[in-house]
Every structure is written in structure tokens, then in C-alpha cells.
Design a protein around this nucleic acid. Structure first.
Lengths: 337, 337
DNA sequence: CTGAAAGCGCTTACAG
DNA sequence: CTGAAAGCGCTTACAG
């Protein structure tokens, strides 16, 4: 592998000059630039990033941190969409992605993750930080490198989806269809901050429609399709009069729809079932699922953009992204009977 | 941040000794080990990986390469499962994952990817390498770092799923149910090497059942659920007598099932539809989908294991993983009428 | 078993 | 605008 030295020798200049030309400092003539670039070309020179990292303190690598909770990272389609947004932005700005999936316990993050953060390998961090009992951002700020949290943890820079408005929109829509007997398939609030906001949105929506939210039966699942079926079973056995189920994610909505089918309740004619997230499968499912689009790729893109701003010395603002109601086939007015 | 120097001073030994203790070479007494470890502890020392990389030539980072074709990386659940397997193995062996999603064109891979490979940042590569018109492994072998390909490209080390046997099993099963009028929802063979093997498996299976594979109508989709619906429409309009559709992935099978529903053909009673891959949604779909499990996480795990063997100086063998038929609700014997 | 010293390939004040 | 030189924090023969 040719080094900076080789390029310098070939171009007849010093390594300092080569370095300056390559890093686009303004201090050189067009003539030397040409000489250097030609030598680079002929030698097929590529910078050694490790050396660059050691001497400059910059690696052009960012860590993307998806905490490993409940195996959710590797089965949740949303995660991949967020990653997609981050990757797109990284491509534009010339950063690489180091993927980290630390294990979270109530005693904090694992040692390997700590080591990574302290290693000098990364310039910044984008982290999904929504698990109430442990923050992955905290070790990062301790090390003093820039971090952007996707979630509700207090961090210098955050990107959030407006979960409150999302479920508020949904509740307005469902009550607007005429539903009054509504069941909730939720998720334990201590698992995920977003859930707390989604529940508040539901409550606010119920209040707007003069319904007592506390009377809505609610059973909690664990994000999975299977749990959606189980929750729907519990809910509908005890409350057969329900005309609508609001689920806090799409996969549980799919599970609920499947359960409904097994007991002969047609969706949407005999039961409305709605979801949240708008994962790709929500449109493809049968019936296609009415849901809230929380713009996952955009979430990732915004986080990356903020991080790069910070790394370039700017002071960006945190971002909250709006949600959108996507009306599909799984919802309808309650049957008149 | 404390450095090796600081640790050495505190422990009253040389930096060389500290380095040896930390990297587990056998040359030191228990006494010095204790001194060193105590200093490490007290200082909260963590090695600077960039420095380590520069001087040793090893980074403990591997690149995981998912070529960006047809946006498939970020919508394909299988990708995430493979990544899951790789991540699990990396955790055990102390490697980090640098995620790379190069754009492939007929003119090869993009410049950013080339730069990454040449950068000295990575010890090895695991790559999905299945796109006939461009290999992402080739630049890696040119650089001379170890690489494991998941796919059919000729590489020193490969991990493959036995696609041929997968579809062979499936065809045996479907014909065993009594189906003779079978439609194929395929994928263009020049898009993906696996597809070529899957098609051969189908052909072999048809031959075993004394059926002429060439008579099976076939329409090609693009992996997506939507394309599955479209293909099913074309197939069933022109060949209403078909009793079974074999789809080369699960998402297209889901699309096909939905289309069947719109024209009043019940799956499985009035039409058998089977898939391939066993993505998580295949079990959750309604009806749940008969499919081939290609053990995606295991694929990733095996690839990582092979790579670490090579990096440790061993000479592992390439691996071919068996596939498993998963029988669920979307398949049945053809209606007698 | 231990340490002095060179070296990995860059970047960055600093002087000119 | 250009270059000599120090330095980033480790590892690795080598000598003892």
C-alpha cells in the first residue's frame, strides 16, 4: 500500500503539503495540487484511516446504537427503516456506520459498549434511547463526544416522533367513525417512553369525544404479532361488545385481526382494528391496516443531519417529526346492529 | 483519557509490559499482572483503538456488506436476521461491525466502498454476494484481507443455504399433496444467484413427480408483496385451473394470497400458496404460510465464525446449510372437484 | 520475564 | 504557500 510519504516523494513535495491538499485546506497553489493529485492517481493512494484517526482524533465513523431489548432490534421492521435514513445521510456526508447493539440491564449498559464509546474509534453517536431504566447516551456524554438521541431521554440533541399527536389523531378518527366501545392493545409503559406518550394521546382523544378513557378495556402485549392475537382474545372474550381495537403497533394489529377471523368477526365490517408505525407489511396485509405513519426513515435522516451539524461545529435544533394518519381497509363505522 | 503511558508509570513498569499484560501474551509474572491490572482499574484506562489499529494493523472491526440493490436491504426482513446472527458471533469474539451498503452497478462497486476496504479500518469482511453482475468481494481480495461471502460467488470462504434442496423439498411436498397444475411466482434469474438454484430445485422436483416443468406457467416478481399480487393475477387470469402457486419468497406469497382472496379463491381450500425464507411474518400471516426455512441467523453466525477462524490463522471450511420445510396453513390437497 | 526504542501513517502548529 | 519536526497511543522485534 502506498503511503503519504510515497505520494510526497513522487510529487516532489513534503508530506505536510500532500496532507493539506488532500484535506482541502486552502493553502496551496493550483500547480502543487495538480502534482499531488497526479501522484495520488498514479500510485492509487488511499489514506489509512487508522493513522488519520490517531493523529487528528477524527475517524469519520459514527456509532449507531440500537439497544438490545427483548430481541426487538432484529425483528422490528422499524429499526431497519430508521437505519435506512441514517445510512442515506451518512453516504452524503462521507461517514461510516459502526453498528452497536448493547445489552441493557437495570445496572446499565454492558462493558463492551462502554469500551467502544471510550475507544477513540467514533466521532459521534446516534442512539435509540427510549428505555426508561437505562440510557445508552449517558456514557457517551461522559466521554464528551456528540450524541443524538432518537427518543424521549433528555439529551443535548434529540429527534422525536410526535407520539402524542399520533394516537390523538387515531382516536379522533376512530371515534369520528362512530365507535364508542373501544379496546386498547397496549404495551407496558415502563418498557418504552414512546408508549407513555401514545397512551396520553389516546386519553386526550377520548376526552375530546366525551368518552371516559378509563372505561376502555386495555391489555398489554409485547410488540409481537402473537401477543396481538393473545391480547385480542382476552379483550374480546371479556368484552364482546367492543367495536374497535386500537393497537399501539402494527404487528399487534395484525395479530388481533387474525384472532378476530378465527372467531368469525370480519374486519372491518364487524370489528375495526388499527395499528401504529406503518411498517411496510401494514399496506400489504389483508385487510390493509389503518395506522399512523411515524416516518421512520426521516427520523434516522434527521438524527444524522443533526449529528453532522454538531460535528461541523454548528448548533442545530432538536427535531420533532409530525405523524400522519394512513386510512386503509381495516377500519370502518361500527355495524349499525 | 489515561494512556498506556499513564498506566505504566502508575504500575511502575514499562509500556511494553503493560501492553503484553493487556494483550495476554504469556510473558509476565502474576505479580506484574496484578500491578498492571490495578493501575488499569484505578485509572479507568481503556485502550485507544485507533492507536492499536495503527501499530498492530488490527482493528477488531469487520465490515458487514449488504449491497444496495433495489432498496431490498432495508425492507427485507431476512437481512436483519442475517445481521442478528453475525452480531451474536461478534459479541462473543469481541469484534465490532461496520455496516456498509455499497451501490452496485454494472461498472462495479462505488468509490466510497473501495475507499473503506482500502482504509486499514477493517480486519475482514462478511458480504452478501449474490448479484451476478457485480461482486463486492473482489476489491477485498485485491486488498488481501479475509472475506467470507454469503452466497454463490466464488470466494475463498463461502456460506450458502442449500437453495436447490429447499425448492426440491417444496416441490416434493406440493406434488405429494396431489397438485399437478402448478404456477410459479419467480424472480429474474439474473438478479440473484440463489434464484437460479431455486429454479433448478423446482425443475428437479417436477421431474421426480413425472411432471413437465416447462409446462408450469411462470411469472416473475421483484421480491415485494405487491409484485406477488400482480404475478398471481396474471397467472390465475390466464390459468384459472391452477391449484397451487409456488412463490420464491414469502412476501410474494403473501401478495398472492391477498389477490386470491379478492377473486374469491380461498387459501388453502381452493388454492395452495407456498413461500420461501420463513420470515417472521410467515408464521403470523393469515393463513400462516407454508415455506422453507433457510436459517438466516445461522447463515450469519456461520459466516462470522469462519471469518474469525481465518483471522486467527486457522483454515475453516466453507459451509452449506440445510433448509427445512415448514408446513403451515396455506397449503392443502387440491379440491377434488 | 522486562524494558528501551523504533515505528505504524497520518496531522498540525510553527517557522520561514 | 511550503516544509521540518513533533506527536497521536499503541505494538513489536530485539537485547538483556
Amino acid at each position: 500500500m502506498p503511503t503519504l510519504q510515497d505520494v510526497a516523494k513522487k510529487a516532489g513535495v513534503s508530506t505536510a503539503t500532500v496532507s493539506k491538499v488532500l484535506s482541502n485546506t486552502p493553502y496551496f497553489t493550483e500547480e502543487t495540487r495538480l502534482k499531488v493529485m497526479q501522484a495520488v492517481e498514479e500510485l492509487g493512494y488511499m489514506p489509512n484511516l487508522a493513522a488519520r484517526a490517531l493523529s487528528s482524533g477524527k475517524t469519520r465513523i459514527i456509532a449507531v446504537v440500537f439497544p438490545y431489548v427483548y430481541d426487538a432490534i432484529f425483528t422490528d421492521p422499524l429499526v431497519l427503516r430508521i437505519l435506512e435514513g441514517i445510512e442515506a445521510e451518512c453516504g452524503k456526508f462521507g461517514y461510516n456506520i459502526l453498528l452497536s447493539t448493547p445489552r441493557l440491564t437495570t445496572r446499565g449498559v454492558d462493558a463492551r459498549y462502554r469500551q467502544l464509546i471510550m475507544s477513540g474509534y467514533i466521532d459521534g453517536v446516534i442512539a435509540l434511547d427510549n428505555v426508561p431504566f437505562a440510557s445508552v447516551i449517558e456514557p457517551v456524554r461522559k466521554k464528551g463526544i456528540p450524541a443524538v438521541a432518537i427518543g424521549y431521554y433528555e439529551a443535548d440533541y434529540c429527534v422525536r416522533s410526535d407520539d402524542f399527536s399520533g394516537t390523538l389523531q387515531m382516536m379522533r378518527y376512530v371515534t369520528g367513525l362512530g365507535h364508542r366501545q373501544i379496546g386498547i392493545i397496549g404495551i407496558a409503559e415502563n418498557l418504552h417512553y414512546s408508549i407513555q406518550y401514545r397512551l396520553r394521546g389516546l386519553k386526550a382523544g377520548a376526552a375530546e369525544a366525551n368518552l371516559d378513557y378509563e372505561n376502555f378495556p386495555r391489555v398489554d402485549g409485547d410488540f409481537s404479532t402473537t401477543s396481538g392475537s393473545d391480547c385480542a382474545a382476552k379483550l374480546l372474550e371479556q368484552n364482546p361488545h367492543l367495536t374497535a381495537l386500537i393497537c399501539l403497533n402494527d404487528r399487534m394489529a395484525m395479530g388481533a385481526i387474525q384472532y378476530a377471523r378465527t372467531i368469525g368477526r370480519d374486519v372491518p365490517n364487524n370489528l375495526t382494528v388499527v395499528g401504529y408505525d406503518d411498517i411496510p407489511m401494514a399496506a400489504a396485509f389483508s385487510p390493509s391496516i389503518t395506522t399512523i405513519d411515524q416516518q421512520a426513515p426521516e427520523l434516522g435522516r434527521a438524527a444524522a443531519h443533526i449529528l453532522f451539524d454538531v460535528l461541523d461545529g454548528r448548533s442545530p435544533h432538536s427535531v420533532e417529526l409530525p405523524t400522519h394518519l394512513i386510512i386503509r381497509q381495516s377500519s370502518a363505522s361500527p355495524a349499525s346492529g
